[in-house]
Design a binder for these strands. Structure first.
Length: 834
DNA sequence: TTCGGACACCTGTAGACAGCATGTC
DNA sequence: CTACAGGTGTCCGAA
């Protein structure tokens, strides 16, 4: 079947595809067409990676647009959104417009509503529905990429609920779901009421095998001799073998999958011995340039180590890297400049980075819940293997698993190579997932009664595949109790039917895209300030055990609302009530004017306190406590106990206290960021990479903004607290101490420049308008253009720097200032803000 | 005394979405 | 209840 023979596509599209080299549709694509994908019929395509799934989606979307509709393409990662956008942009010549919408990026210019194709992450789509984006109910075609991710316990439910909502709002919506080959694609098709196209067909041959001893045994029965000398590294030998086997005039690149960041880094370092000697002169030059670029991204050890490896043609890739690092590595690998990448599973699920040979070195990974090394899922291994073979570059792809002994070799064959991927199972019926989605579903009007809610949930994958009818309802009821107890939802039970409505704050929480539990925690903490009910005591270690105190501390609110089994945060800290009988109820502040000794202590809200509040929320990913950290942070906890909002769990309550300390570690990281501590210092102090730091800061910024909104909207939080939250947020946003906030707000002035200006005596935006130009120029290291732009942005009437000479002393002050700042950033100055 | 190698013990463990309003060195 | 690779420290013998 030729593209140009297809009807229903915009004019010229078929021909354009043929011009791209698509002379004939691949068998799965043809099957998709026969199943009606260009006629608006829904479809589930469960086919291997790189076998033309995207084209199936394009055919669906383009034909839908030709019929006058619009299409939405849902991706699981932000990075994939931009990848797909770039891919689809080739249709702009045919009058198709593309828009992207993700958390950190939105197509500029025209509004998304005018776009034919919108690419967005599943969370963003969910959020757009919650916020009532007008174009959502005009969609005629939705594509869900990597739909097998509904199996993911954290993010799967979002995709599931979002698809259900889209289908409810748009009757007759064409749903095209693209999936990896999974055990039960048929169930997904049933759920979506779609045709199923399932196939193992691949455009490039993929051979998978296991290496043990002196050869790779492939699953097709063939063998390739790759002898490993004694003492020689197995991985290195296989990478060398691929590089030394020329196809198409070039050696093949390799992708090595390992199970930890550290292993990725050390593997990359070791493999430089293989890659470095095989580089050509020009490659060496390009790599040196790339290494410089990498060093420029961040001055952490991670960045330096990466640059060192890249210089020699090898690289590592994991989530500790800054996103710029990652894309530099990915691009250079695709450009065949980097010969080998050692990666954690990030790369298997991420953007397209194919290699001639994929080496799966580690097939087990540590899992705390499991209690040891857990074998990876078949699906995960298949995804990794699927990265082998670059279309158009390699005549074939090879995926090799490594075994140390014959038994392991057998096991790998049976467990992975000959096995089908696991079935996908919905994870919707879990409290954290439903907490969020039940609230959103009620808040955005998809259900107004308990029955309506349950019948909406009946449209999810969970409902189509479960045997246990009652479970979803049971969890839903638990969650409703929680939401009602926290005043996010109002329920009225009259005449048998139970009606549901989101409260004002419930709507806000839903729109802010917060986990309701995060919101409850933040509201609770913020109210503590207003009531003067700050933690007065780091818990009554001696008075009463946590096990039994809960019984005699029943506050008014507890007796009313606190039913067992939910609402950990309603007033979960009963153990904090000690024999003194102090009023600990946050809500009961009507009678709290009788502020005792705690009132004075609580009047001061510090950034650390606020950072801890958002850090202990379930929306903030936890930082590990390493050995020695427990001690460090316990100490910090006592030192600064007055600053924390809400109660501190007892030290004897192991798990909760550990969690609390882990949040404290995050909070201190944020405080460091807001006190201008250098990135490399922070990386060292917290044992994280630049990517982690930026991730934390980013999440904190989001949560702090949400906290600010909540503080404003909710009753019982005073104005000073709102201001304190705003300031704490701004300090995270700019990464500066308080005194630089004004300066850093000026465009083109970041944390570094603000500090230099400040040390030179230019301390405010107003100073910028009045200050001696020589001083400004000196502080900015004589950069005239920069100085002019900054003065202009500060509102100065005559920003011109013509004939201005940089003031030497200003320059010296600026340098000395920032230098001493760095030096003085030891522990002594920690916590020194004002 | 110093150095290097073998070996025992210790340590630490993958990933990354959202809001909102514009711009870092 | 469960692992394991890499890094670090220790001990020994040789130079």
């Amino acid at each position: 079947m030729q593209p140009s023979s297809l009807s229903g596509l915009p004019a010229g599209v078929g021909e354009a595809l043929e011009a791209e080299g698509v002379a004939e549709l691949y068998p799965p694509q043809q099957a998709a067409v026969e199943a009606g994908v260009v006629d608006g019929d829904s479809l589930v395509a469960a086919v291997p990676t790189a076998s033309g799934k995207t084209l199936i989606a394009e055919l669906a979307m383009l034909s839908a647009i030709e019929r006058g509709g619009t299409a939405l393409y849902i991706v699981p990662l932000r990075a994939l959104a931009s990848e797909k956008k770039t891919e689809f942009e080739r249709w702009e010549d045919h009058g198709i417009t593309i828009g992207v919408s993700t958390g950190n990026y939105e197509s500029d210019g025209e509004w998304l509503a005018t776009r034919d194709i919108i690419v967005a992450t599943s969370e963003k789509v969910d959020s757009l529905i919650r916020n009532g984006a007008p174009w959502i109910d005009d969609l005629t075609c939705v594509v869900s990429d990597e739909v097998h991710l509904v199996d993911d316990s954290h993010r799967g439910p979002t995709l599931e609920v979002t698809l259900a909502k889209l289908r409810k709002v748009n009757s007759g919506l064409q749903t095209v779901a693209l999936s990896a080959t999974v055990g039960n694609a048929g169930v997904i098709a049933d759920w979506l009421n779609a045709e199923l196209v399932e196939s193992d067909w691949r455009p490039i041959d993929l051979r998978t095998g296991v290496h043990f001893g002196n050869a790779i045994d492939f699953d097709d029965g063939s063998k390739r001799e790759v002898p490993v000398d004694r003492g020689e590294d197995q991985t290195a030998r296989l990478v060398a073998d691929a590089l030394d086997t020329e196809e198409d005039g070039q050696g093949g690149s390799s992708l090595v999958f390992v199970n930890s960041r550290r292993n990725a880094e050390s593997s990359a370092r070791k493999l430089t011995d293989v890659t470095a000697p095989r580089l050509t002169g020009p490659e060496r030059d390009d790599l040196r340039e790339l290494a410089e670029e990498i060093r420029g991204v961040s001055d952490t050890d991670t960045s330096e180590d990466l640059a060192d490896a890249v210089e020699q043609g090898s690289a590592f890739h994991h989530a500790g890297l800054a996103s710029e690092h990652r894309s530099l590595v990915e691009d250079a690998f695709r450009a065949r400049l980097i010969k080998c990448v050692s990666a954690t599973p990030t790369l298997a699920a991420g953007v397209n980075t194919p290699a001639r040979r994929v080496i799966v070195r580690d097939w087990r990974r540590y899992d705390g819940e499991f209690g040891g090394m857990k074998p990876l899922d078949v699906l995960e291994i298949h995804q990794m293997c699927g990265r082998a073979g670059r279309p158009g570059l390699d005549p074939y792809g090879e995926a090799v698993l490594l075994a140390n002994d014959a038994d392991t070799k057998e096991e790998l064959f049976e467990r992975y190579l000959w096995a089908d991927a696991e079935p996908v199972r919905s994870k919707l019926a879990a409290e954290p997932a439903l907490r969020t989605h039940v609230l959103a579903t009620v808040a955005s009007g998809f259900a107004s009664t308990r029955d309506g809610l349950l019948s909406f949930l009946d449209n999810t994958l969970y409902a189509t595949q479960t045997d246990d009818e009652g479970r979803l309802a049971a969890v839903t009821d638990t969650v409703l109790d929680y939401l009602a107890a926290n005043d996010f939802v109002e329920r009225e039970r009259d005449a048998g039917a139970e009606s549901l409505a989101a409260t004002g704050i419930g709507h806000t929480v839903s729109r802010l895209y917060l986990d309701p539990m995060s919101a409850a925690e933040m509201i609770d903490g913020l109210r503590t300030v207003a009531t003067g009910d700050a933690p007065s005591d780091v818990v009554d270690a001696g008075t009463g055990t946590s096990a039994d105190t809960g019984e005699f501390i029943m506050t008014a609110e507890n007796t009313d609302d606190d039913e067992p089994g939910f609402g950990t945060y309603v007033r979960a800290d009963a153990e904090n009530g000690d024999a003194s009988g102090e009023a600990i109820d946050g809500e009961a502040n009507a009678d709290a004017e009788d502020g005792d000794e705690t009132a004075a202590a609580s009047s001061e809200v510090t950034p650390l306190g606020i950072y801890h509040l958002v850090s202990r929320t379930p929306d903030m990913y936890e930082l590990y406590l390493k050995s020695g950290d427990r001690e460090t942070y316990t100490e910090l906890c006592y030192e600064r106990e007055k600053e924390f909002l809400g109660d501190i769990p007892s030290e004897y309550e192991d798990v909760r206290f550990e969690d609390w300390l882990a949040s404290l570690k995050t909070a201190r990281l944020l405080e460091d960021w807001a006190t201008e501590v250098d990135e490399d210092r922070m990386a060292e102090r917290y044992g994280v990479g630049p990517g982690d730091i930026r991730g934390k800061v980013d999440t904190a910024e989001w949560l702090l903004r949400a906290a600010e909104t909540l503080a404003r909207d909710v009753e019982g939080v005073d104005g000073d607290t709102v201001v304190a939250v705003r300031e704490a947020r701004k300090r995270i946003e700019y990464g500066v101490r308080e005194e630089l906030l004004d300066l850093a707000g000026v465009r083109n002035v970041g944390r570094k420049r603000a500090r230099r200006l400040f040390e030179a005596g230019v301390k405010t935006r107003a100073d910028l308008r009045e200050a001696d130009k020589g001083t400004v120029l000196g502080a900015l290291r004589g950069r005239e253009r920069t100085a002019e732009r900054i003065l202009e942005n500060a509102g100065r009437e005559d920003p011109s720097m013509d004939d201005v000479r940089p003031d030497k002393s200003a320059s010296a002050a600026a340098t000395a200032g920032s230098a001493s700042d760095e030096d003085g950033e030891g522990q002594a100055s920690l916590g020194d803000f004002r």
